[in-house]
């Protein structure tokens, strides 16, 4: 069953085409990765799905319902939660309060928001730091908090924007494990932008490759890494860099 359908979406900024006629379908339960070199339009695609701005042309549907003109808060209410590539914690609030603000979207009252927030913090290894203010966290912890807060809204689809960037290999492996758990046990579909190929290969069931805003390939991780165009434009370029 298709959960999210992006259909021939284009977005221009001052004449520059950031996303060029992109289509993709994310099935319920999938771990879908979008990869591509810097400036390929991945974050713009995310912002389009999350409702930060509308596409110039094309449609986006979630559970069969059009969301390409909906406001971000409405999209979150429908069941799509996102993280930000540059983390945006509520700096002066505690880790617990950060997560509880996410949880209160669906919790009946604040007590249960805090209870749910606590469970999620345990899951993300943040429980011991629950009373710290968010601005005092290390970068890996802030990345975790970003995921925790989004997860607390109990989404059907979780959009993760480079949550592995800046993590050490052991931390990456731990995050892979956490995300896999979320996907399997909570049956939350994940759509992620990721640069860390180690994580993509370990997690993704499907990979979509963007280059200069346009799709150049889509398939399983193994198929995509064998694709000549992908190797040339992305993997190759990275290897030479």
């Amino acid at each position: 069953m298709t959960l999210l359908a992006v259909n021939r979406v284009t977005k221009r900024f001052r004449g520059l085409v950031a996303v060029d006629n992109v289509s993709l379908q994310v099935d319920a339960g999938a771990m879908f990765a979008v990869i591509g070199p810097n400036g390929a339009g991945k974050t713009t695609l995310f912002n389009l799905i999350a409702g930060v701005f509308p596409p110039d042309t094309g449609t986006i549907s979630f559970e069969g319902e059009r969301i390409d003109r909906a406001a971000p808060e409405h999209i979150c209410q429908l069941g799509i939660a996102r993280t930000f590539q540059i983390v945006r914690p509520f700096a002066e609030l505690t880790v617990m309060e950060n997560a509880a603000i996410g949880a209160m979207l669906r919790a009946p009252d604040m007590d249960s928001s805090y209870a749910q927030a606590g469970e999620i913090l345990r899951r993300l290894d943040l429980w011991d730091k629950r009373d710290r203010k968010a601005h005092g966290l290390t970068l890996p912890d802030r990345k975790r908090l970003e995921v925790a807060r989004a997860l607390a809204t109990r989404p059907k689809l979780l959009l993760l924007d480079e949550v592995m960037a800046g993590l050490r290999p052991t931390e990456t492996d731990r995050m892979v494990e956490i995300l896999r758990g979320i996907n399997r046990e909570e049956s939350i579909t994940i759509l992620m932008i990721e640069h860390v190929m180690r994580a993509v290969m370990a997690l993704a069931t499907r990979v979509h490759v963007l280059h200069h805003g346009a799709t150049i390939a889509e398939g399983t991780p193994t198929e995509v890494t064998r694709d000549a165009r992908v190797i040339e434009s992305y993997l190759g370029a990275e290897a030479f860099a």
Partner: peptide, 14 residues
């Protein structure tokens, strides 16, 4: 408090 700290992040949480 969420809006005070970061309006866009608050919006992304519904």
């Amino acid at each position: 408090l969420a809006v005070r700290e970061d309006p866009e992040a608050a919006q992304a949480l519904g």
